[in-house]
Design a protein around this nucleic acid. Structure first.
Length: 152
DNA sequence: GCCAACGTTGGC
DNA sequence: GCCAACGTTGGC
């Protein structure tokens, strides 16, 4: 799942959310709001289950890459930010979702540039397609990435 | 800041 | 249901 670790003002609000921001939250847990893409929403609503692991990706920043691992502690439910006309994530047509997590941070970012150098990851949605804020990861890809992280 | 790739909208 | 126009993502 992607989030932007550097400050960016969207409709008057800073949307910055890094792995450190997640860690700093109460119980290192947060809702995951603001998803406004149907495919991404469907993955959150239909496929992400309690206890599932999540690769936390830093996007739109100096070193885009995987920052660590989080886990689902609550399954999808409607994103209330979509109902609030004053909220930057307001959507007048809304019915949406969001899960929650906790996390483990990698020693260093596994940068996109580095991930691209590893053949076993060549078919990752992240590499092949890129643009999608919530993406499925194959178990083999996840295991490979955790091995890379453990070698740091 | 550029722009390619892709998603969404809406007229027809 | 097509598709042009437009908007967004996100690496570079």
């Amino acid at each position: 799942m992607k989030a932007e670790p550097e400050s960016r003002i969207f409709k008057g609000v800073d949307v910055k959310f890094s792995i450190d921001d997640l860690y700093a939250m109460k119980d290192s847990t947060s809702q995951w709001d603001g998803v406004r893409n149907f495919e991404a929403r469907n993955i959150m609503r239909d496929r992400m289950k309690l206890g599932d692991k999540v690769l936390f990706y830093h996007s739109n920043c100096k070193t885009p890459g995987i920052a660590g691992v989080a886990a689902i502690v609550r399954e999808g439910y409607p994103d209330h930010t979509a109902f609030d006309a004053a909220h930057p994530y307001y959507d007048p047509k809304s019915v949406r979702d969001s899960p929650k997590w906790y996390m483990r941070k990698f020693a260093q970012i596994l940068s996109l540039a580095e991930l691209k150098e590893h053949g076993p990851l060549a078919d990752m949605v992240l590499i092949k397609r890129g643009r999608l804020s919530v993406q499925p990861v194959q178990q083999s890809e996840y295991d490979y990435i955790l091995e890379l992280a453990d070698k740091q």
